[in-house]
Simulated assay, not measured.
Amino acid sequence: MPDTPPVFRFAPSPNGLLHLGHALSAMLNHDMAKATNGRFLLRIEDIDQTRCRPEFETAISRDLAWLGLDWERPVRRQSDHLDAYASALERLNELGVVYPSVMTRGEIKAAVAEAEADGRTWPRDPDGSPLYPGRERTCSASERADLLASGRAYAWRLDMQKAISLLGGTPLTWDESGAGPMDEAGVILANPAAWGDVILSRSDAPSSYHLSVVVDDALQGVTHVVRGRDLYHATSVHRLLQRLLDLPQPLYHHHRLILGPDGRKLSKSNQDTGIAAFRAAGRTPEEVRALIV
């Protein structure tokens, strides 16, 4: 039986124009797929319907084609597969590792401020955001039903400590071919607890990035996840969800970030570093590649 070819993917959100950082990620995925006789997929992560727009999706395809990249069709759009994320959330609910939460950002901020005013140090995740207080974590089944029926906006959160306990003490790791603190075999010890009770779904959005990315990668047979270093620590959460949902583990490769003049990673608001801006200025795809790869 022939070996299954490796599968790579570039998965942008159509909420703005692609910049040089996106170009680097797309090119690396494309080049690595080509070098290994693998497949290169384009996935449109358009869960957030308030920010994602069709014209940005059109621009993504135009920019990637101008860069000389080609990808398999049809393109997977997350908005076409909401049932897959709902099924994954339901499975986690059956495991007893999710709970509905209703605290607003303002309420979380107030709770953190009160704790810090009392001299307590509030834990923060790797991105610097305070961990969720988890007040609803111990609610009874009837209390949760009342909460969901109250009409308040809510989010489904992962009960992190309970989820980790289901691993039975088995170490949670991932295989990394990029940069990072790893052993000689390229194995990294994951630390999902650092993220606290992450959001998996909201009443106004059917899935979070954490949940949808692991479901999509599994359903598309992705074997190699190549993405920026800004998502390095989030891999701990993804590995936990993969274990809970019995999903395969891809090989991870976190590449360097391209930084702007202010030393921060590029954002879609940096129009001067947009692919379309380089094209409009008369630059060639080869010149853009030389800038970043």
Results as ranks from 00 to 15, higher is better:
residue 90 E to C: 02
residue 162 K to H: 09
residue 77 R to N: 01
residue 103 M to G: 05
residue 54 P to A: 11
residue 72 E to K: 07
residue 38 G to S: 10
residue 8 F to S: 01
residue 28 L to M: 06
residue 241 L to G: 11
residue 66 W to D: 06
residue 184 E to Y: 14
residue 69 L to D: 03
residue 125 D to M: 09
residue 131 L to Y: 07
residue 222 V to F: 05
residue 277 A to M: 10
residue 258 I to N: 09
residue 171 P to Y: 00
residue 144 R to C: 04
residue 30 H to G: 01
residue 13 S to P: 04
residue 269 S to Y: 13
residue 24 L to D: 00
residue 79 S to Y: 05
residue 206 P to M: 10
residue 11 A to W: 02
residue 78 Q to E: 09
residue 225 V to K: 11
residue 184 E to L: 07
residue 203 S to H: 02
residue 180 G to P: 13
residue 150 S to Q: 08
residue 42 L to W: 15
residue 22 H to K: 08
residue 120 R to A: 12
residue 51 R to K: 14
residue 215 V to N: 01
residue 123 P to I: 12
residue 228 G to Y: 10
residue 145 A to G: 06
residue 158 L to K: 03
residue 264 R to K: 12
residue 159 D to E: 04
residue 245 L to E: 09
residue 41 L to D: 12
residue 85 Y to C: 10
residue 30 H to F: 09
residue 247 L to E: 03
residue 241 L to R: 01
residue 87 S to T: 11
residue 193 A to L: 15
residue 139 C to M: 12
residue 41 L to V: 05
residue 138 T to Q: 13
residue 143 E to F: 02
residue 173 T to W: 00
residue 199 I to T: 12
residue 210 H to M: 06
residue 47 I to Q: 01
residue 192 P to Q: 10
residue 69 L to Q: 03
residue 166 L to A: 06
residue 7 V to T: 13
residue 256 R to G: 08
residue 140 S to G: 09
residue 181 P to K: 02
residue 200 L to G: 10
residue 273 T to R: 13
residue 56 F to P: 00
residue 111 A to F: 09
residue 237 V to I: 14
residue 231 L to H: 15
